[in-house]
Amino acid sequence: MKIPQRGLHQVMKLSVLDLVPVRTGQNSAQALAASVRLAQRADALGYTRYWVAEHHNMPSVASTNPAVIIALLASRTTNIRVGSGGVMLPNHAPLVVAEQFALLEAAAPGRIDLGIGRAPGSDPVVTAVLNQSGATSDVNRFPNNVSDIIALLGPDGAAVQLTSGKEYPLRSTPAAAGTPEVWLLGSSDYSAGLAASFGLPYVFANHFSGQGAERALEIYRSGFEPSAYADKPRTFMTANAVVAATADEAYALALPNLQHMARLRTNKPLGMLATVEDAEREQTDALTEEFIQQAVSRYILGDPASAARQAKRLAEQHGVDELMISPVAGSFDADPLDQTPARERTLELLAAELDLTA
């Protein structure tokens, strides 16, 4: 397989994915305040995008409603693109998604990304509760719902065919001056193939899966059909990242997230994200340690020079000019509850090493 080569003079773009983590002792208001501050730091440092995820009923994640958080972040930043990574479409009616993002685009023209995912982002109980509201959509209609959203976001809207044979005009907003940029997200062959057939930009969720990226990107690039949205494949990938003054410090800061992900993967009870001190005291079993050692090899982790080399190597390996990092550094007991200094430091050190302002 031939991997597209990055241009010799191209500057790597960096973006941010945020789950709005909630650590021990924090409340949702403080976690959200910390993410606002992080987004402002990313904006000042020259990061390209700042996306927020959608997860439900998780003690350690406050990012439950991307559209609401995007509105807040767009109002508190100046240049950075703000978007969803992603809106989990089975949880929403396509018209509602289109209306939300049409208004966001109107409020922050040229700065809104609509990243769409096919997974529910929740457990079966939460999915059942969402289904009771009648506002969700059938996952099997995902391709149709994506098409509907794209049509509804256009200036001319969409036409609904009535049983009488007449067409009923439907718009997401009365007079759109622009449209958000639509991306398909995923970690499977299916999402890559669908993005290619639609001619949409595609993001591989490497921070979550860590496997199958090469195959998914090949499917996307080889099957891409030019469209009104993109004349050639546009893609990037995500990666968890912790950068500190030394490799040992970076590992200590990553440990709360690594332990948390191990609990998730091994179906153990989840709580709030541990502090660095709590993670150091945690007694872990062999299965957890095995997962941590496997997972840490996929992180961008270390001192600034090492982390920059890892980021460049990942980008070159997969032929992308942009990486979206999820800064997963933990917090110390003494850190202010409305700030995440180590996550901010990760963004600062990596941006300085890769010279985003060049």
Rank of each mutant, 00 (worst) to 15 (best):
L184M: 12
S197P: 00
S60F: 13
L200Y: 00
E289L: 15
F224M: 04
E277W: 08
E348F: 06
L217I: 10
N145L: 00
T179M: 13
A151D: 14
A29K: 11
S172D: 01
A358Q: 15
A159Q: 14
R221M: 01
S209Q: 08
A342I: 02
A308M: 08
A71L: 07
H55G: 08
V16E: 04
L170R: 04
V146M: 07
E54W: 01
L14P: 03
L32W: 08
S187W: 04
A205I: 03
P21Q: 08
A230Y: 11
Q283R: 13
A305Y: 00
L95M: 13
L103T: 12
H92G: 00
Q339N: 07
G117D: 09
R141H: 13
F142S: 05
H318K: 01
S306H: 12
T127N: 11
P90F: 02
Y299F: 15
E181M: 08
R313A: 15
A44F: 03
F208K: 02
W183E: 03
A205P: 01
D333T: 15
A274L: 14
S191M: 09
T163E: 14
V96K: 14
R23G: 12
W183N: 04
A31V: 04
G157K: 10
L184V: 05
A262I: 02
P201D: 06
S222L: 05
A195E: 02
F198A: 05
P4H: 03
Y190S: 10
L38D: 06
Q294M: 10
S191R: 02
G271K: 05
G86P: 06
A98G: 07
R111H: 04
K166V: 11
A358V: 14
D231L: 09
D231T: 13
A67W: 05
M58T: 01
E181Q: 13
A279W: 04
G271M: 00
A71T: 09
F198V: 05
G193V: 07
I112V: 15
A44S: 13
A67F: 02
E214S: 13
S326C: 12
N267Q: 13
S326G: 09
G110Q: 07
T173F: 15
A230I: 11
G212D: 04
E348R: 10
A71M: 06
A39N: 03
F101Y: 15
A107P: 01
S297M: 11
T275D: 09
V87E: 04
G319C: 10
F142Y: 14
G110H: 05
G154E: 15
S35F: 02
I3D: 00
I70Y: 02
I292T: 07
D123L: 03
V182W: 06
G178S: 15
A53G: 01
Y47H: 11
R6L: 14
S35E: 01
A351D: 04
N91F: 06
A295P: 01
A274S: 12
A245Q: 14
R111N: 07
I116A: 04
N91P: 03
A351K: 03
R76Q: 15
A228V: 10
F236H: 13
A44D: 12
L73F: 12
T266F: 09
I116L: 14
D189F: 03
